[in-house]
Write a protein that binds this DNA or RNA. Structure first.
Length: 808
DNA sequence: GTCTTTCAGGTCTAGACAGCATGTC
DNA sequence: CTAGACCTGAAAGAC
């Protein structure tokens, strides 16, 4: 079928596709058309990566738009949202408008309603539904990309519930779901009342095999000799072999450290194959990478990149990732050693994919657990660049014959696992039941259960009472924490319950925060029978059996969360930060550390890992600063709770360092994290503190001011005294500190200050003018002003590239 | 005596969504 | 019930 033969699309689309080189639809695409994607029919397409899934989605959305409707495209990752948006924007010349909505990149709410196609993450869509975005009701088509992720413990239930809600809001909604090939595609189609397109077809051949000894043994029976040198290392030999043919490789490993060390070793291989021109370009790229962030991670990456290799994992900042991915696509970087980030993320195809580690540490499992077949298939699916490579190769590594057999059985010839709903777990239901009640989808227990009937879980567990049991446990929990009220059969969300739902908080996080703030305010919480934790799981866990034995958490309050005092052994900066807090007036003051700790121990914060040596260190920190923390320290023999408390303390102290202007590289070194991790924690803390501020405001708690200040400090990464300055546009943590040191301590000062001093602190003339303009100075011109040298000197001490932590 | 290799023992372990209101060096 | 790659430091070996 030719694209121009398609009907129901906006004029010119078929021709455009032909212009892109689409002469005929791929078989799965044609199948989808036959199944009615362009006629508003529900379709589930379970096809391999890179076999034209996106076009199926585009056909559905464009035809929906042509019929006068609007479409929503749900992605699992923010990075994917912007990638897809750019891709869809090529239809704008045919009058189709595109918008994106994710947590950090939001086109204004109502404006989105005017778009024909909106790309959003599943959480964002959920949030839009919770907040009653009007245009959601008017959708005519929803596409869910990577639906197999409903299997994910943490985020799967959100997608599942969101799809159920969208379909409930609009019974005529066309649902198109794109999935990797999975074990139970028919079941998913059944859930969504959709036609199934299930296919293994690929546009370019994928040869999968196992390397053992001196050859790759492919599934088709062929062999390729790749002899391993004296060192016995398979990976470098395979990378070298690909390079001989002018191809690049992607190596998947199971830890960040492995990714980094593999990249550094592979640099030795790639550097042998570079042209002088490439060397030059790589040197430039390395410089760009160093400029992103002044951390060890950044340096290490730059060093590898100069040799044509790179590593890729979540410790990298988004700028790092973009640079590496881009250069790999441009074939400048010859090999990337990556953790699974890259398998799920944006499109980075490669001639050869090497799955080096096929087992990964899993604490629940108690050891190294084999990766799911589905996950390995996702990695292998990155092999082969359409239009560039004749075929792709995906290779697993075996060091002995038994392993070789096992790998063949499990991954090369093995079927991917079926997708299983993880909805019947407390953490998932906690948040989704509250949201479902709060946004009016259900107001009795029966309604709720009936609503849940629209989920994949219901399809998969007919006759299983677990969902019902967990629902009851969770309803009890929500009622005990005053998020819902029950009167007879009727369940309604309380005012605070509504807020929690709209803020997109896990109710357990909200309860923890409320308890903590009440505790600090000296309220005993006498109306509250139950503590925040209760018998509920902190983390997602579908199959654990739960007990509903709530414990009282809140009977006593700590005295004086205020006593800061003794800073003897503390890091200078922390001590100063503390002092600043103590200086602030008001009796309900809570230290920033206390608040950071509070949000860090919430299930919405992914805490820093407590390394073995850390335990002693943080026990000491706890001893020194316990009075600042909100709520009671768990007893030491309660190992799990105590350990969690300590790692939250570690996280909190990192945030405190950040909010005390400690340099990024020092933080990275001190907490053994990458720039990406720092950004992530800061981001989450900002979000949670904003929620805390709202909750405190609504409950009329007296510590709103402290919360707001702690939030602003993390936001800007500065101590209290700079907050006034950083509120000026164009002034961040570094410039603010330099101004402060030059004696300019406030916006008012800045308006009055001597221009030479300002120029000295801010360096560039243009920068200084812009800043003065932003602060509202009458005459911002710096024309002919000569920088004051004292200010310059003060400024220089602070010099040292601070990362730009802005997104994108 | 000094540098290098080897080996035993200990350590450490993937990822990343959301609110709100706009802008770092 | 379950691992394995990497690092560190000490001991052994090479010159």
């Amino acid at each position: 079928m030719k694209p121009t033969e398609l009907t129901g699309l906006p004029a010119g689309v078929g021709e455009h596709l032909e212009g892109e080189g689409v002469e005929a639809l791929y078989p799965p695409q044609a199948e989808a058309v036959e199944a009615g994607v362009t006629d508003g029919e529900n379709v589930v397409a379970a096809v391999p990566t890179a076999s034209g899934k996106t076009l199926i989605a585009e056909l559905a959305m464009l035809s929906a738009v042509e019929r006068g409707g609007t479409a929503l495209y749900i992605v699992p990752l923010r990075a994917l949202a912007s990638e897809k948006k750019t891709e869809f924007e090529r239809w704008e010349e045919y009058g189709v408008t595109v918008g994106v909505s994710t947590g950090n990149y939001e086109s204004d709410g109502e404006w989105l309603g005017s778009r024909d196609i909106v790309v959003a993450t599943s959480e964002k869509v959920d949030s839009l539904v919770r907040n009653g975005a009007s245009w959601i009701d008017d959708l005519s088509c929803v596409v869910s990309d990577e639906v197999h992720l409903v299997d994910d413990r943490n985020r799967g239930p959100t997608l599942e519930v969101t799809l159920a809600k969208l379909r409930r809001l609009n019974h005529d909604l066309q649902t198109v779901a794109l999935s990797a090939t999975v074990g139970n595609a028919p079941e998913i189609a059944d859930w969504l009342d959709a036609e199934l397109v299930d296919s293994d077809w690929r546009p370019i051949d994928l040869k999968t095999g196992v390397h053992f000894g001196n050859a790759i043994n492919f599934a088709d029976g062929s062999q390729r000799e790749v002899s391993v040198d004296s060192g016995g290392k398979q990976t470098p030999a395979l990378v070298d072999d690909t390079l001989d043919e002018g191809g690049s490789s992607l190596v998947f490993v199971n830890s960040r450290r492995n990714a980094e060390s593999a990249a550094s070793r592979l640099g030795g291989v790639t550097s042998e194959h570079l042209t002088d021109e490439e060397r030059g370009e790589l040197r430039e790229l390395a410089t760009a990478i160093r400029d992103v962030s002044d951390t060890a991670t950044s340096d290490d990456l730059a060093e590898c990149v100069a040799k044509g290799a790179a590593f890729h994992h979540a410790g990298l900042s988004s700028e790092h990732r973009d640079l590496v991915e881009g250069a790999f696509r441009d074939r400048l970087i010859k090999v990337i050693a990556a953790t699974p980030t890259l398998a799920a993320g944006v499109n980075t195809p490669s001639r050869r994919v090497i799955v080096r580690d096929w087992r990964r540490y899993d604490p629940e499992f108690g050891g190294m657990k084999p990766l799911d077949t589905l996950e390995v298939h996702q990695m292998m699916g990155r092999a082969g660049r359409p239009g560039l490579d004749p075929y792709g190769e995906a290779v697993l590594l075996a060091s002995n014959n038994d392993t070789k057999e096992e790998l063949f059985e499990r991954y090369v010839n093995g079927e991917p696992e079926p997708v299983r709903s993880k909805l019947a777990a407390e953490p998932a239901l906690r948040t989704h039941l509250l949201a479902t009640v709060a946004s009016g989808f259900a107001n009795t227990r029966e309604d709720l259960l009936e609503f849940l009937d629209n989920t994949l879980y219901a399809v998969q567990s007919a006759g299983n009472a677990q969902l019902e049991t967990v629902t009851d446990t969770v309803l009890d929990y929500l009622e005990a924490n005053e998020f819902v009220e029950r009167e007879g059969d009727t369940i309604t969300a309380t005012e605070i319950g509504h807020t929690v739902s709209r803020l997109y908080l896990d109710p357990m996080s909200a309860a923890e925060i409320i308890d903590g703030l009440r505790d600090a305010a000296g309220e005993t919480g006498r109306d509250r029978q139950y503590g925040s934790r209760g018998g509920l799981d902190r983390d997602a866990d579908a199959d654990a059996d739960e007990s509903a034995g709530f414990t009282t958490a809140n009977d006593l309050l700590d005295e004086g969360a205020l006593e800061n005092g003794d800073g003897e052994e503390k890091d200078e900066q922390s001590a100063e930060a503390e002092e600043a807090d103590a200086d602030a007036d008001g009796t309900d003051d809570v230290s920033a550390l206390g608040l950071y700790h509070l949000v860090s121990r919430t299930p919405d914060m992914y805490q820093l890992y407590l390394k073995s040596g850390d335990r002693d260190e943080y026990e000491e920190v706890l001893f020194e600063r316990e009075t600042e923390l909100l709520g009671r320290t768990p007893l030491e023999y309660d190992d799990v709770a105590f350990e969690e408390w300590l790692s939250a303390l570690k996280t909190a102290r990192m945030l405190e360092d950040w909010a005390s202007e400690v340099d990024e590289d020092r933080i990275a070194e001190r907490y053994e994290v990458g720039p990406g991790d720092i950004r992530g924690k800061v981001d989450t803390a900002e979000w949670l503190l904003n929620a805390a501020e709202r909750l405190a405001g609504e409950l009329d708690l007296p510590n709103v001011v402290s919360v707001r200040e702690a939030k602003k400090r993390v936001e800007d990464g500065v101590r209290e005294e700079l907050l006034d300055l950083t509120s000026v546009r164009g002034v961040g943590r570094k410039r603010a500190r330099r101004l402060f040191e030059a004696g300019i301590e406030s916006r008012a000062d800045l308006r009055e200050a001597d221009k030479p001093v300002v120029l000295g602190a801010l360096r560039g003339q243009k920068t200084a003018e812009t800043v003065l303009e932003n602060v509202g100075r009458e005459d911002p011109s710096m024309e002919g002003v000569v920088a004051d040298s004292d200010a310059k000197r003060a400024g220089r001490e602070e010099a040292g590239g601070q990362a730009s932590l802005g997104d994108f």
